[in-house]
Amino acid sequence: MDTITHTLFGLGIYKAVNKEKMSKKEKQALLFTSVGASQIPDIDVISQLWDTAGQYQMWHRGITHSVFLTPVWALLFFMLNYLFFRLKSWPFFWIALLAVFIHDTSDVFNAWGTGYFEPFSNARLTFGTISIIDFVIWFLFLLAFVMAKKVKTMKEYRLYRITWALIAVHVIAQSAQGYIVYKQYKPHYEQVALSASFIPWNYSIIGKDGNRVDIIQDSLLTKGNLMYKLQSGSDHDLDTLFKQNPKAQTLYEWSPFVVVVDNNQQLGIYDPRFYRKGQSFLFEYIDKTQK
């Protein structure tokens, strides 16, 4: 998910805790823990500073997002709470554990995916059923915030717990529909990937059959619409590309499948899941015109 959503998750955890018997210092520690732990897996972005081998695509959302690292991050926040607030309270460990788990698991649901089982598996786990920016989640948190200000008859923490339940229902419903759509197209292609749209219950289905790649917009409530028909070049001789642009090899290993661009100007590959308006956000190439 995006940074704003992860921040909302942290604030949502903080709001969902009953703080009536907490001291000011405990509330500060809780806010620090819930928001900080909701962001900590994305600390891997600093790896760009020393990436000279073109490996950032694999490092980002890699080991720091592993489910096996969640207790390590939680223990870190347990110790930071003692360092900054002089609090040695195990409930903060569990809050941090929950926040990191939500971060790592929510990232699995969008097309970018994570190294959820690293270091035991380098495969990117991705469902593609939730958009990286999910406006339904934003709306539910906004609604909770407004209601907490307007409705004084309900405890704030109870209101946010209901909000969390609604978010869970949304994720389950959205993912179930995406899975059904995915299964409908799977028999028709050699490889299929799914990418959720910003519009709820709508998806892009990316199907590859030989060198043909189709991008179809579909949902359970509408008829499928072929948006793009792409032709991929042969991918049997990409050594030159990988030698001159190491990021291309990383992208090749990271993506479920790629489209190869081989013309008089360029030799490159791109991930068709991120193809919009004639180009992909993830495109690595070399310029053939330069010697």
Results as ranks from 00 to 15, higher is better:
F77L: 14
D271C: 02
W73Q: 00
F141M: 13
T105Q: 12
D214S: 15
E253N: 10
K24C: 04
V192S: 02
D235C: 01
A196T: 00
V72E: 00
Y203C: 13
I167A: 04
A16I: 00
R273H: 08
D262N: 13
P91H: 01
T114V: 08
L76Q: 01
N245T: 10
I206P: 00
L238G: 05
V35H: 01
I4C: 09
L159N: 13
A99W: 11
F93V: 09
V45D: 03
P246V: 15
D2N: 14
L241K: 05
P187Q: 04
L11R: 04
W59I: 08
I40N: 08
W254Q: 13
F135Q: 06
P256L: 07
H170Q: 05
D235K: 14
I205F: 00
W73S: 02
Q249H: 09
V35K: 00
I102E: 03
L159I: 10
G224K: 10
L251D: 09
A168C: 11
I13G: 03
M22E: 12
K243T: 09
T70D: 08
Q290E: 07
D42A: 07
I13S: 01
V100A: 09
G36C: 09
K155H: 10
F283P: 03
P200F: 10
T7M: 15
T52R: 11
Q231L: 12
R273P: 02
P200L: 07
L69Q: 04
P91T: 00
Q231R: 15
Y270H: 07
S232T: 03
F242P: 02
A29F: 06
E253Y: 06
A248G: 04
L31S: 01
D287N: 13
D239A: 15
I132Q: 04
Q290F: 08
F283S: 13
I269L: 12
L142V: 10
P200M: 06
A111P: 01
L80R: 02
L31R: 00
A96T: 01
A53V: 15
H6V: 07
N18C: 05
Q48R: 12
H103P: 09
G178T: 08
T70C: 07
F139Y: 04
R161D: 04
S175H: 05
I216M: 04
R61P: 07
A148H: 02
K243R: 09
L230R: 12
K243W: 06
L241H: 05
D107E: 07
T289C: 03
K277M: 07
I102T: 00
K183W: 08
I133R: 11
A16D: 06
D262H: 15
E284C: 02
Y189M: 15
I13K: 02
Q217H: 12
V100C: 09
L282Q: 02
F109I: 01
L221S: 15
P246M: 11
L8S: 03
K247Q: 14
K288S: 01
G54L: 13
L30S: 09
K208V: 14
